[in-house]
């Protein structure tokens, strides 16, 4: 990754502005986003939908959907990381790149699952020790193409230097999809039940059913959360390592190297 090629204006941002920048990034990426959605998230949607239809009262689809959720953010992260520092890749290329780094990404995912399970079992204690050191792992791996060892070291340093960003990103990663689920469920129910007067053909989230609306809300939020985290990560690097100053200096020393 070369900060000189960044399409994101490197300057200090607050979390709210970073969220806005994530939305602007989503629009800038154009048609690649729906294509990537069709390639990666839609198949999972179909599988999960079929599962829920087959076992509507089972809790297992909820558990699996929650466990797989961070994995669904990875293609969006790969797309954002590539597009911000180079050309916008095609959806197929993003998938291929993701597959090439599947080992690292799966390791990250398994670590996340182990962390979540042990946190539940040990009253959240591992959270205190693990989150600060591993929170930016996926971003570090995606942007710097590092192996898991150096990435852990780098991500840990960054988290310790900007703990506020970690807290904010944690909050959005946790509550963002929840808000999206509630918004999508309310919208879907309002459209089908109130406007079209068709009742509740898919059940209701409030009765414990995983409805298509809730699923759509959570899946639509996945890339936005991934891009928000990416921009917050870049903001941390700007504040801590002075990337904006580096870009300005390199622009003075060799004019034409910056956009």
């Amino acid at each position: 990754m070369n900060p000189l090629q960044s399409r994101l204006a490197l300057r200090a941002r607050d979390p709210l502005t970073s969220l806005d920048a994530a939305i602007v990034l989503a629009r800038s990426l154009g048609m690649v986003v729906p294509q990537l959605f069709a390639l990666t998230i839609l198949p999972w949607c179909v599988v999960l939908g079929g599962w829920v239809a087959w076992a509507p009262t089972s809790v297992l689809p909820w558990v699996v959907a929650t466990a797989v959720y961070p994995l669904l953010q990875l293609p969006a992260l790969e797309l954002g990381a590539t597009a911000l520092f180079g050309e916008v890749p095609s959806a197929g290329r993003v998938v291929m790149r993701g597959l090439a780094r599947l080992d690292v990404m799966m390791t990250l995912w398994v670590r996340g699952i182990v962390w979540a399970v042990t946190s539940v079992m040990c009253l959240g204690l591992p959270t205190v020790f693990l989150v600060p050191s591993t929170f930016w792992l996926a971003e570090t791996v995606a942007l710097e193409k590092r192996g898991i060892g150096p990435a852990i070291e780098r991500a840990g340093r960054l988290s310790v230097s900007a703990p506020g960003h970690v807290l904010t990103a944690c909050g959005v990663a946790l509550f963002g999809p929840m808000i999206a689920v509630v918004a999508a469920e309310s919208t879907g129910q309002a459209l089908v039940s109130t406007v079209l007067q068709l009742g509740q053909p898919f059940g209701s989230l409030w009765d414990g059913t995983l409805t298509p609306w809730a699923m759509a809300g959570s899946l639509l939020a996945a890339p936005i959360v991934a891009w928000f985290r990416l921009i917050l990560y870049l903001d941390s690097r700007t504040r801590i390592e002075g990337w904006d100053l580096q870009v300005a200096i390199d622009g003075i020393v060799s004019p034409g190297s910056t956009r």
């Binding site: 994101l8 204006a9 979390p15 709210l16 502005t17 806005d20 920048a21 602007v24 911000l84």
Partner: peptide
């Protein structure tokens, strides 16, 4: 470029820059 800054030019050719406020 991914940014939320927008520029306005007055009839006197003075340019003001503002940051757009998004949904958040």
């Amino acid at each position: 470029p991914v940014d939320t800054v927008v520029a306005f030019e007055t009839p006197e050719r003075v340019v003001f820059r503002h940051r757009l406020a998004g949904p958040a």
